[in-house]
Design a protein around this nucleic acid. Structure first.
Length: 624
RNA sequence: CGGGGUGUAGCGCAGCUUGGUAGCGCGUCUCGUUCGGGACGAGAAGGUCGGAGGUUCAAAUCCUCUCACCCCGACCA
C-alpha cells in the first residue's frame, strides 16, 4: 500500500468532523419481508429485497429505499474522498448523449442494442449514456487550451443506462445503475504528468477504496473490450456466485481474467501416425458437441478451426485459428499473433471465399489464398497419438484420422513459422486459446493456474489516443509540436459494489454489513418503546453516538422482541444495542456485534458510547 | 436473440388434468390477552386470476394471440 492510501485510512477513521445521523424506524421506510420474492435467486438480490433496501420496478430497474440508498451513498462518498485525494475533480455530465457524438467513435455500432436510444420531438436522436468518453472528450477538447493544464482527471458519479440482453441478479447486473466514471488527460504516457503516473495513482486509490469498503478482492489484468485501449485492470470481489472467472497463479500472485490470461510455455510437436484419413457424413452438425457424439470421440481429439478476417476494408486477409475441440479461441491472442485487428469472419463472405463454415479444417490453408493458419500448441501436439478429427471442408462432412504432416498439404513449421509467400499463406504455431485452470503459469515455472469466481466492481483502462484521435483532440507541446492527447478512463460500479459486499458478507439470518458501508453503524433495539424512561435512555445514547459521528437507527416499533431481533439480523447493522427492562435496571445495555454469534454482553450505560466508538473505528480501519 | 420456466391479495403458494361459489399460510386493520428470538383468540379489509380475443349456458381452468418477469447461454461497472 502506498503512503497516500495509508493516510486516507487515518482520515477516514476519524469521526470527529461529522455528526452521525439518527433515524427512527417508525419514521422511515424499511419494508422487510419474511420470505424472499421468488424472482430473486442470488443471496445479495434476495437480501436486498428482504431487508427492504430496494424494490424492483422492471427488469434490471430498481427503487432504492432508505437503507439501500444510504449504503450506496456511503460507497459513493468513499469513492469521492479517494478520488478527490488522488487529485481528481468531480463534475456532472448529462445523461442524454446526442447521437452525433458517436459519429467519430462508431461506438453506437460497437454498443449496438446495448444503447438505450430515444428521439426528441424534433426527431433528434440521443442515447442515455452507457459511459461518457465521447461527452467528456468533446468537453475537454473545447475547454482545455494548453498542455500546461495537464494532467487533468475528472470524474462523476451518475446513473448509467445499458439495455443489457439479460439483466439479472438484482444490482449485480442492472440496466440502470450507479457508476463512477473518471477520465484523465495527458500529453504523454510516460514520465511526469503522464498517463502511467495517473493510472498508477488511481490504481492505488481504487485499492484503497475497496479496502475501506471492507471487501475481499483481487486485481486482475484484463482485456479492454469495446472501450478500447492498452493496459487494463479489473477489480474483482471474490465471491463464488460471481459471474466472472479469473485465473490466478498462487506462486507469483499473477491474476488475470480468462480473456486476458497468458499461458506459460507449452512444448509442442506434430506426431505422425498410421491411421487413415476417413470421411464421415455428419449432416447438420456444425458444432463440436454433436459431431463428437456422432463419431463417438472426445472433444479433445478434435481440431476446431475458427475463421477470422482483418477489419480494414479491401485487401481481405483470412486467419484460421485452430485449437483443440475442448478449448476456446481467444480473439485478442489471434489479433496479437497477426499484428492487426481481426474479427470473426462474416459467414457470407467466408463462404464466398470457399470456407465451409462449420466444417472448416486446417487444410484450407492449402486451397484458399491469403490465409494465415494459426495452430495452438495443444492443437499441434494432441493428447497422445496425434490422431485428429476435423472438418472435411465440405458441408455436412467431417474427417477422422487427420495427420498434420501428411494431410495438411502445406509445409508445417518446425520451429515457429512456415510461409508460402507466393500465395500469401503462412502456418504458425502460436498460443491462440483462452487459458484454463491447470494451464502452466506464465510467471512462475512449475506453477499451475487455478480458477476463482469474482464480481467485477471496477475496471480501469489506458485508452491512449483512441478517443482523442476520433475527436481530433490534440495540443501543442512545449516544443510547439502538435500531439494527440493521451487518455485514461476509470470506472466503478457503485451500486454493484453494494450488492457484491452483501454477496460476500451475509449469513442465513441476513446481511452482515462491513462497517464503512453499513446504512447505519448502530441499531438501538428498544424493547419497550412505550416506556418513557427507556425511550429517554435510547434518545440520550443516540444523541451521544451521533455527536461522536456514528449513524444510529432506533427500532422504536411496537413489535414483539422476536420480530425486532429477526429484523435486526436481517438488515445486518454492525452493532446492536438492546435496551430492555432487565439490563436497564442494572444500569446497562446489551451490546452485540452482528458478526458475533454469541448473545453479546452487558455494558454500563456510561461506557456504551465509548465502546461503540472504538468498535466503529476498529471496523472502519479494518483491512480486507 | 436462442433454449427453459412462471404469472392467482403486499409476500409465499394451492386450485387448472376432469369448466360451475376464488382458496390457504404469512403480512395488514380493529379489540382483548400477551411481551427477550418471527405470540394467542375473536373479528375485518384486501383479488379486472398478467392482458386481448375465442369456444361454451358457464372460463383462473380449454384454444389462439400478446405482454411481463425469472433461469441457462454471448457482452459488461
Amino acid at each position: 500500500m502506498n503512503t497516500a492510501a495509508t493516510n486516507d485510512f487515518a482520515r477516514a477513521s476519524s469521526l470527529a468532523h461529522r455528526a452521525g445521523h439518527i433515524c427512527r424506524w417508525t419514521r422511515t421506510l424499511i419494508p422487510t419481508l419474511r420470505e424472499a420474492p421468488s424472482d430473486a435467486t442470488v443471496p445479495s438480490h434476495q437480501l436486498m429485497l428482504r431487508a427492504g433496501l430496494m424494490r424492483q420496478v422492471a427488469a434490471g430497474v430498481y427503487d432504492y429505499l432508505p437503507l439501500g440508498w444510504r449504503s450506496i451513498t456511503k460507497v459513493a462518498n468513499i469513492v469521492r474522498e479517494e478520488m478527490d485525494a488522488a487529485g481528481s475533480a468531480e463534475i456532472f455530465l448529462p445523461v442524454l448523449v446526442p447521437m452525433e457524438l458517436y459519429a467519430g467513435t462508431k461506438r453506437d455500432e460497437a454498443y449496438g442494442d446495448l444503447l438505450f436510444q430515444l428521439e426528441d420531438r424534433h426527431g433528434r436522436r440521443a442515447a442515455l449514456g452507457p459511459t461518457h468518453e465521447e461527452t467528456i472528450t468533446e468537453l475537454c477538447k473545447s475547454a482545455i487550451t494548453s498542455y500546461k493544464q495537464f494532467p487533468l482527471t475528472l470524474y462523476q458519479i451518475q446513473t448509467k443506462f445499458r439495455d443489457e440482453f439479460r439483466p439479472r441478479a438484482g444490482l449485480l447486473r442492472g440496466r440502470e445503475f450507479l457508476m463512477k466514471d473518471a477520465y484523465s488527460f495527458h500529453l504523454v504516457q510516460e514520465g511526469e504528468g503522464g498517463l502511467d503516473e495517473t493510472y498508477d495513482r488511481l490504481h492505488a486509490a481504487y485499492t484503497s477504496m475497496f479496502i475501506r469498503c471492507g471487501l475481499d478482492f483481487t486485481i486482475v489484468e484484463a482485456e479492454s473490450g469495446p472501450i478500447g485501449g492498452s493496459a487494463s485492470h479489473e477489480f474483482m470481489v471474490n465471491a463464488e456466485t460471481g459471474e466472472d472467472t479469473i485465473l490466478i497463479c498462487e506462486k507469483s500472485g499473477y491474476a488475470a481474467n480468462v480473456e486476458k490470461c497468458e499461458i506459460g510455455e507449452r512444448p509442442w510437436k506434430f506426431t505422425p501416425h498410421a491411421q487413415q484419413l476417413t470421411d464421415h457424413h455428419t449432416p447438420g452438425m456444425p458444432g463440436i458437441d454433436k459431431v463428437v457424439e456422432h463419431l463417438g470421440i472426445q472433444a479433445s481429439g478434435m481440431l476446431k478451426s475458427v475463421v477470422f478476417s482483418n477489419t480494414e476494408a479491401g485487401n481481405r486477409k483470412w486467419i484460421v485459428a485452430v485449437v483443440r475441440g475442448d478449448h476456446d479461441v481467444n480473439e485478442a491472442k489471434v489479433r496479437d499473433a497477426v499484428g492487426f485487428a481481426v474479427q470473426l469472419a462474416d459467414e457470407k463472405e467466408a463462404k464466398q471465399a470457399g470456407f465451409a463454415i462449420g466444417y472448416v479444417s486446417p487444410r484450407v490453408v492449402a486451397t484458399i489464398a491469403n490465409t494465415t493458419l494459426l495452430i495452438d500448441p495443444d492443437a499441434a501436439t494432441g493428447l497422445a497419438t496425434g490422431v485428429w478429427a476435423t472438418g472435411a471442408d465440405t458441408k455436412d462432412h467431417h474427417v477422422t484420422g487427420f495427420d498434420w504432416a501428411r494431410d495438411l498439404g502445406s509445409p508445417l513449421p518446425v520451429d515457429q513459422v512456415a510461409t508460402d509467400a507466393g500465395r500469401g499463406c503462412s502456418v504458425r504455431v502460436v498460443g491462440v486459446r483462452n487459458a484454463e485452470p491447470g494451464d502452466p503459469s506464465p510467471k512462475a515455472a512449475g506453477s499451475r493456474l487455478v480458477a476463482r469466481r469474482g464480481i467485477e466492481v471496477a475496471h480501469i483502462f489506458k485508452l491512449g489516443t483512441k478517443y482523442s484521435d476520433a475527436f481530433d483532440f490534440a495540443m501543442m507541446d512545449k516544443a510547439q509540436q502538435r500531439q494527440p492527447v493521451t487518455m485514461g478512463c476509470y470506472g466503478i460500479g457503485v451500486s454493484r459494489t453494494v450488492a457484491a459486499a452483501i454477496e460476500q458478507n451475509h449469513d442465513d439470518a441476513g446481511i452482515r454489513w462491513p462497517m464503512a458501508i453499513a446504512p447505519y453503524h448502530v441499531l438501538i433495539v428498544l424493547m419497550k418503546p412505550d416506556d418513557a424512561d427507556h425511550a429517554a435512555h435510547a434518545e440520550r445514547i443516540a444523541a451521544e453516538l451521533s455527536e461522536a459521528g456514528i449513524d444510529v437507527l432506533i427500532d422504536d416499533r411496537a413489535e414483539r422482541p422476536g420480530v425486532k431481533f429477526k429484523d435486526a439480523d436481517l438488515i445486518g447493522l454492525p452493532i446492536r444495542l438492546t435496551l430492555g427492562a432487565k439490563s436497564l435496571e442494572e444500569g446497562a445495555v446489551e451490546f452485540k456485534l452482528r458478526s458475533d454469534d454469541s448473545k453479546g454482553d452487558l455494558v454500563p450505560i456510561a461506557e456504551v458510547v465509548a465502546r461503540c466508538v472504538s468498535e466503529v473505528e476498529r471496523g472502519l480501519a479494518a483491512k480486507a
